[in-house]
Design a protein around this nucleic acid. Structure first.
Lengths: 346, 346
DNA sequence: TTGTAGGCGTTATCAT
DNA sequence: ATGATAACGCCTACAA
């Protein structure tokens, strides 16, 4: 017996005096292995502490039972829930998960995608990643299945899981309009995001329908960070005619908006209404108590992973499915009638 | 040329009319390959879009360039920062990261650890995991390097990265004591945590030194969730003689404490002071504005990963290093003198 | 400097 | 029902 080396299927075969192919079959639960034989093999494997090398198996079977998930930044509370959803399904499917943070940078995304491909992952889930650039498309065009989450391409009909952004933004605007707001600002998220584009379009359409202000001074380009929310609010609140409500790009962003408002002594919701998106756990407590558009992120992650497993099994035969999750507005305490209307309403 | 099959080093060799060992050497940047040869090889590899199989390489080299990281729950804002720290180093070392959520359940942890071992990870980082149980120890005793974070064993001198919990708790108690508090409650974290034990011990020692109340009615067993904080505060605040300050098990937990207080109309910090631990980003903004013990989580994750890489390279030769990161109290607006002392101080 | 051969640990195919 | 053997794709002696 070699000293330091790992114990392999070969050792198990030797231990119980059988051919290694028989051991393999027994352990794999193949039909035609006799019950006593199987038991003998299992006992021996157990006794020796044998564990099959997933590496060797993957190489041989051309199936690694791993999937990769790319996300901008785990530290941003907007994203972990998707990842857990993906993991929920991965575990069920006995797959392991490679995690990659890309910080929204294409270079990092490419590096990670190449790494995942080198590792022969069975598939990948791209959460809020770049999806249009030629370099990314080239990698996507390899034969590895993938599913996009929250960002899709306008030119390619990829498998996609997203949220109903139109409903979400319409619900937010309608709520604010109902409260009496007529100047409602919007913090746009990352420019490359289809979700952002959809929200912006929905906002414009709906605002036009309501015949209220929708000028470009009501938009601000930011991203999903507190800092961006802070900058956005600072900008909006120093306008000659500032908006009475701000729809942030997400909950974290909304925190920044609240911060800027507080810093200027502007009270929320009395003088300014704020709406987020995500409904992260912390948003629901009194400290924040944020009115926000609820997204079923963990469920979306799960749906994406299920879709991915399907495509792994059927090797991209079917047309790409796209599933859109409903959203709904959760009204809490950062929205109220605007100052001018305070006496009027309620 | 075979139709559907992946392109291998063999194809590259054929393409440029060299032996595959030469190609391997050229691509690996070995000394003794002539420059023109190397260039020819690189061109060919590029042209064919060749990418070495990390699987085959790992199998052959007995080094997978992957590491696993176990964490209780990514959705809890207390944990992602460690993971990113680990990833920072993993990327630098050209390793990929397997992510595992265990929800603090030993069964899930064991399942994941076995999976990682099967995948032949080069090492693993265990963040706030079970470290004492026989089953876990058995897996740890395999030949795969590991580093513990925030939870260590009292019986085994494992490689460990943690925070100076004593300093943290002492700073918190001292701060509250200085403000005039004499009944300071503590929410204990998960019972299995060494960090929790250290904090508790430090609390007891220091409170005794100050000769203030330290009775068992000032402890509450919780975990790192909002719900636990809520329960803890509900319990404390319904005592006949409630504490005037509560040290939560962490920032998320503190949210629960604040929630319970608000629900009862108890104002913070006027009637109740609250201290957290972690200093998650959201804690620093006005909505929350939590006095808390700052932990350098990303740096700790990085340190753990560096330590792990060392042990991977030197195959557990040296004695297990243990590094303790300093902590410091960040005073914000959830702490103030207790009601009785309001006029006295300041 | 380049080429040949063997093996890492599996599973799949084909005999027996 | 079981056994021998050939890949999977790579790296690394060792030979030329």
């Amino acid at each position: 017996m070699k000293k330091n080396s790992r114990i392999t299927i070969r050792d198990v075969a030797k231990e119980c005096g059988l051919a290694l192919s028989t051991v393999s079959n027994a352990l794999a639960g193949k039909q035609y292995v006799r019950e006593p034989t199987r038991i003998k093999v299992e006992k021996a494997a157990e006794r020796l502490g044998y564990r099959a090398s997933a590496l060797a198996r993957a190489l041989r079977m051309d199936r690694s039972f791993t999937i990769g998930v790319l996300v901008p930044d785990l530290i941003n509370p907007a994203f972990p829930a998707y990842v857990r959803g993906v993991e929920d399904i991965a575990i069920r499917e006995k797959c392991n998960l490679f995690l990659c943070n890309t910080d929204g940078e294409e270079a990092k995304q490419l590096w990670h995608m190449r790494g995942l491909l080198d590792r022969r992952v069975d598939g990948m889930v791209l959460i809020a990643q770049h999806v249009e650039s030629p370099a990314v498309r080239a990698l996507l065009a390899a034969n590895t299945p993938f599913v996009l989450v929250q960002r899709r391409s306008s030119r390619f009909p990829d498998p996609y899981v997203g949220a109903n952004n139109v409903d979400g933004i319409v619900a937010a605007v309608k709520h604010l309009y109902g409260l009496g707001h007529r100047r409602i600002a919007l913090v746009k998220g990352p420019a490359e995001s289809s979700t952002v584009a959809e929200r912006l379009q929905a906002y414009k359409d709906y605002v036009r329908r309501l015949k209220i202000d929708g000028g470009s001074d009501l938009f601000y380009q930011g991203d999903y960070t507190v800092e961006a929310g802070y900058s956005a609010a600072s900008h909006f609140l120093s306008l000659k005619s500032p908006p009475t409500a701000i729809i942030a790009s997400n909950d974290v962003n909304a925190i920044g908006v609240l911060e800027a408002a507080a810093e200027r002594g502007i009270s929320v919701p009395a003088e300014l209404s704020v709406v987020g998106t995500d409904d992260i756990q912390l948003a629901s407590f009194r400290a924040f108590n944020l009115t926000t558009v609820h997204l079923q992120k963990r469920a979306m992650g799960m749906a994406a992973a299920e879709m991915l497993m399907n495509r792994i099994r059927t090797k991209r035969s079917q047309p790409a499915p796209q599933v859109i999750f409903p959203t709904h507005l959760v009204v809490r305490h950062t929205t109220a009638p605007p100052p001018a209307n305070r006496r009027a309403s309620r």
